[in-house]
Amino acid sequence: MNFFRLLRKATQPGDRWLMALSALLLIGYAGFGAGQRGTLVTIHRDNQPLNRLALAEDSSLLVAGRLGSVTVEVKGGRARLLEYDSPRMIGTRTGWIEKAGEIAVCVPCGILIQIQGEEANPTSSKLNSHGLDGIAR
């Protein structure tokens, strides 16, 4: 007797719904737990916490960096850095970040933003969505 026939005989319809729901929850945990959406973005200047913005509310904040102003923009549950004067514009080129642990940084400005939330797998780079612990470069 195959597994599904045994399952059908051994359970009531209500049981099967409950099992399907549990299975979906498990799949959800395994598939999306590694990159859960955050709830806050924290802003650091020279490694000191400066401010925090809720991702639930669209907003923007002008921060004085070492090389000039940097804007932290929150929109649609995501955040990004916009630099006005940075040699490589790496923070700006990082684009939107939204998952817990993701980081955008302007090293010469000394400004770092990080998404906070339940971190199943904290990441500093979008490449880390492979579930890696670090990227050599």
């Binding site: 045994l6 399952l7 005989k9 051994a10 359970t11 009531q12 049981d15 409950l18 099992m19 549990s22 299975a23 929850l25 498990l26 945990y29 395994a30």
Partner: peptide, 21 residues
Amino acid sequence: RRNLVGSILLGALLYAAFFTG
């Protein structure tokens, strides 16, 4: 017997969910 097997399967799923978390 059916109820017993059903309970075991449900228990295994709940245990797996709890254990993973």
